[in-house]
Every structure is written in C-alpha cells, then in structure tokens.
C-alpha cells in the first residue's frame, strides 16, 4: 500500500513538473514496483522534455492480465521477464523496432543479444538480470547448502523453517530442477513425481511468500528461503547472517526486458527511453538501486563498490542456470492442479 502510494505520488509529481515545463510529449511506463530510481525518471524527463507517467504491477502474470483486460494502447513500454516477453510476443502485444532507431543498441552485451525469447532483440532491450535460488541462515545450518535438498528434502535443522516463493512458476521450476526432469514435461510419470515431491516437502515449509521473502530471513522467522539474488543481497546487507546458494542441480536465471508495446501512444518517446536506458551510466543507476545486474557494456565504472564482490551477483563458473520456460496449455493446466493440490 505504501509503495503504491509512493509511486502514485511520484508519478503525479513527474506529471506536474512535466506540465510546468511545457513538455513536448508524454511517456507512459508500466513497470514493476520499486524497480527504477526516481532520479533516473526525472533525468529522462528533463533531458528530453517529456512528461513521464508510471503505473506499477507486482508480477509478470499481473502485467499480462491487466494488459489483456483492456490496457493495451495506454502504455508505451513495459518490463516483462524473459518467458513473458515470448508470451506477449505470441499474443501480438509487442511492436518491433530496428537497431538503427537506437544509437545505443550496440551497447547491449553480446550474450544478451541473441536470446531465445526475442531473437535479435526485435521488440525488447535488456533491463536487469538475476537469479532465483535460496539463502540459508548460517547460524542455524552450517552444512553444504549448494543443493536443492535444502528446500525439498531439508536437513533437520531447517525443517519447519523454510519460506518458498508464492508463485507456482518459480517454485515448480526449482522442484523440476531438483528432480532432474525437464521443465514443462508432458511425461505423466514425471508430473506425478513432481506432484508428490511438493506434497511431501510442504510439511517442512513454514510459509509461502514473495514480497516477505527478505523480511522473514532478516527477522529469523525463516532459516532458509527461496529468494531473488538482489533481494537476498539486501537481506544480507540488513544484517542477516545468510548465504546465497547456487545448487548443483540447477538454479533459475531470469532477465527483465523493456519492451515496446503495440499501439504505443508515444512510440517515439518510448524509443528514446529505451535508448536512454542503454546508456551505461543509466543502466548502472538501475543496478545500484535494485541490486541486480545490467545487460549493458561499460557499466563497471558507475557501479557501487559493494556490488563487485557480492556473491549474490557473481555466480560461480559452470553450474546449471536455467530460464523458466513458458509451458503449453495442457502442461500449465496440470501445474495449476498441482499448485491447487498443494495449497488446498
């Protein structure tokens, strides 16, 4: 609620200041909450004399739901995660641009150019990327944490003290990695095993929560918890004696991307904004704020020193990082049933 209020006030403030400056145009952003520093929006607003308004959402699915419920044509850009870019593209919600429209397009790191969810970056640019696994309180458990057993077959010290993310997508994906079965498997035996795994593991879980994932680790309510890397780093910086794990079975990586929406009312300003975010200094400003990693070359000199050495942001070489896949309708239906069985 506070966040909502804050972002609304911020959006209003920008709107007012924009009008006062007789802005030449507008830009409507649909973004995650608390994911872009206000100063950066002000900077863009001043630099291009554009009035910026922003609304926020709290999950990829909520973004899709609201756009589907009739918000297409309202916003110019949004910031979906990798698999959601693909879904939105298949739903015909994205516009395309050519690299020549964006001078900073070449700043995109090589590894983030040719991504499976948007070949050759026709509709999206990288925003931030990170990983999802879990952090463990080292006062409570001192053994090996780099295994998904911590969540799905926990040692006695951690039983009953585990928080998992309250999203079917990430939790069931990590469970699939634990079992070593492919994501979106259509194999009935594998899906049955997946169902049984989470059913049995639930007895060891204290809570399901995404927005509280940091708080429960800091307060000690949970001794181990699934978490996004940047959020985990913030928890550690707030005093929790926790360590972020890179399980050998695999962990989830994700990338949030700025996409150009179809029927964008201010397409030109949207392109300017995307180009602006590919400026190393600006991409670094987002990273310093959100504590994830930019996909832009040359951000190094602009970054906070603490980020360079943070274990959360520097995964070990090798490992088995996996993007979440968008499942087919049939498989998604089974996932929904598994999730309902789990939380009934």
């Amino acid at each position: 609620m506070k966040k909502l209020l804050k972002s609304t006030v911020a959006a209003l403030a920008i709107a007012v200041s924009g009008i006062a400056a007789h802005a030449e145009g507008k830009l409507a952003i649909y973004h995650w909450f608390e994911y872009i520093p206000q100063e950066l929006l002000d900077k863009f607003s001043a630099q291009y004399n554009v009035e910026v308004v922003m609304d926020t959402y709290d999950s990829n699915e909520a973004l899709l739901a609201n756009l589907k419920a009739g918000s297409m044509g309202t916003y110019d850009v949004a910031v979906p995660g990798d698999y959601m870019v693909e879904i939105m593209s298949n739903e015909g919600m994205l516009d395309t641009f050519s690299p020549s429209e964006m001078p900073n397009f070449e700043n995109i790191m090589e590894q983030w150019m040719n991504v499976s969810f948007d070949q050759d970056r026709k509709s999206s640019i990288p925003y931030q990327w990170g990983s999802t696994s879990f952090s463990v309180n080292r006062d409570v458990y001192s053994g090996d944490i780099n295994t998904t057993d911590i969540i799905f077959n926990p040692p006695s010290e951690l039983q009953g003290k585990i928080n998992v993310l309250d999203t079917a997508g990430e939790t069931l994906t990590l469970a699939s990695l634990h079992l070593g079965i492919p994501q979106c498997s259509t194999d009935r035996e594998q899906l049955k095993v997946l169902n049984e795994l989470v059913q049995n593991a639930k007895q060891h879980w204290a809570s399901f929560g995404s927005d509280v994932a940091k708080d429960v680790l800091v307060s000690g309510d949970a001794a181990a918890g699934m978490i996004w890397n940047g959020f985990g780093m913030k928890a550690r910086e707030e005093g929790a004696n926790i360590e972020y794990a890179y399980p050998k079975e695999g962990y989830i990586v994700w990338m949030d991307n700025v996409v150009l929406l179809k029927d964008a009312p201010n397409r030109e300003n949207a392109i300017k904004f995307m180009n602006f975010l590919l400026e190393p200094e600006n991409a670094a400003a987002v990273t310093n704020f959100a504590r994830y990693t930019a996909g832009v070359k040359g951000v190094g000199p602009h970054l906070d020193k603490a980020l360079g050495a943070a274990p959360e942001l520097n995964p070990p070489a090798g490992g088995n990082p996996q993007f979440v896949q968008a499942c087919s309708e049939d498989v998604q239906k089974v996932y929904d049933t598994i999730w309902t069985n789990l939380k009934k």
Binding site: S59, E61, A62, L64, A65, N163, D166, T167, A168, G169, K202, W205, A206, S207, F208, G209, V212, Q332, Y335, D336, W339, T340, K343, K344
Partner: peptide, 26 residues
Amino acid sequence: PDLLGGAKNFMIGSLIEEQFKGNAGN
C-alpha cells in the same frame, strides 16, 4: 491468512485472486 498464516493454504479470497493475477489465469 497471508501475513499471519504464511499463505500455506488457500482461502476463498486468495483462491480467487490466483485465478485473475496468478499463474492460473483462469
């Protein structure tokens, strides 16, 4: 239920919310 009960079990409210905002999208 979410903040005090740990969201371990659906209540009517959260079940309905899941259908519109969650993965289910039903």
